[in-house]
């Protein structure tokens, strides 16, 4: 899934993934998080965008977890899903400006 990040200030991919994992763990616990199969494919701090991989069974779960993110540290943050696709090629085609 391609996602857009809304936040002031800069942060790294590891900080971002920490927030994502934190949200999944908070909402679904360790057992639920283990089913998500989450991994970061791409992260661009300039464009404030990222590409995440997840299993299609866990899509709604990850969507809800991403929607529940409200801050990174003390800074307000929001994460919006731009597009979901089965392959990275079609994902790039769908999100191309």
């Amino acid at each position: 899934m391609a996602i857009a990040i809304e936040s002031d200030g800069s942060f790294g991919s590891s900080e971002f993934m920490e927030v994502v994992w934190g949200a999944v763990l908070k909402l679904y616990g360790e057992c639920g998080a283990s089913r998500a199969g989450l991994s970061l494919i791409d992260f661009d701090i300039e464009k404030k965008s990222a590409v995440l991989r997840t299993g299609h069974n866990a899509l709604e779960m990850v969507r809800a977890a991403l929607a529940s993110i409200t801050k990174l540290g003390s800074r307000p943050m929001a994460v919006h899903v731009l597009a979901v696709s089965g392959t990275i090629k079609s994902l790039m085609r769908n999100t191309a400006p």
Partner: peptide, 9 residues
């Protein structure tokens, strides 16, 4: 910052 897309709701 707390507004979400319909699909996210």
């Amino acid at each position: 910052m707390l507004m979400r897309k319909p699909a996210e709701l």
